[in-house]
Amino acid sequence: MTGGQTPVVTIEGLVKSFDGRTVIDNVDLTVAPGRIVSVIGQSGGGKSTLLRCVNLLEKPDRGRIVIAGEEVFAGGRVVCDDLARLRQSVGMVFQRFHLFPHLTAVENVMVAQRKAAGVPEKQALETAVRLLKRVHLAHRGLAFPDQMSGGEQQRVAIARALALQPKVLLFDEPTSALDPESTREVLRVMRELADDGMTMVIVTHEVPFARRISDRVVFLDGGRIIEQGTPAEVLDHPTHARTREFLTSFDEITDQETHS
């Protein structure tokens, strides 16, 4: 924790299981304001579930979740009286974008402002246009999702998640469904957000990107945090065999790709 600031996200002793299979096993995680935490690990290791528990899209079995000083989950139940408001302060970007296909890009960025936060039309539009500019897509504002590339859709999704001025942005494998060029576009936008001081939790397979952008890297395996620390600690000098194994498999793939 830095300088005694209230953490944006505090997770304590989080447990979540599906049909008797434990997916999140006693996880603690703290994210301080302006910090970027990357969560890496094998598919099925509980990374996405962890993220989905933060905004309570998934209801944990046990543990405690505090968002910006407000306890939202404790003692096995949701204690937040206004789930919608909680979710407005936690922006989420999905792997497959999930833009609303019946709305244009600009309307996608407007809809939550209008319908969840009650922002007046004119102001919502101005915010939407400003955010589309920020993700370098002002020229695509009137396009429908099916007219846009994956990278463009994901950037609109980022703008949409930013529209309610969230205190933290959650990214669930934001580039896994994208081609290399689109991946670059999206990572660029994420880096710019990082430079602007946005608090972010990023579930990703992009190890080099995680190394560059993160303040802290968390390696999650079998629902447990195996180790966490600075990118240098976790990615360059992992202390656990399991982490080394995981990172080695990544290096092998990268080697194969560069040699083929």
Partner: peptide, 27 residues
Amino acid sequence: VHGAQREAAQALGLNRWSTFAHVVFPQ
């Protein structure tokens, strides 16, 4: 209408009615 659409709406803080009226129903 894909279940992920409802989820995306919820994640944006839309309540059940708004999710239905502005996301699910039009689709």
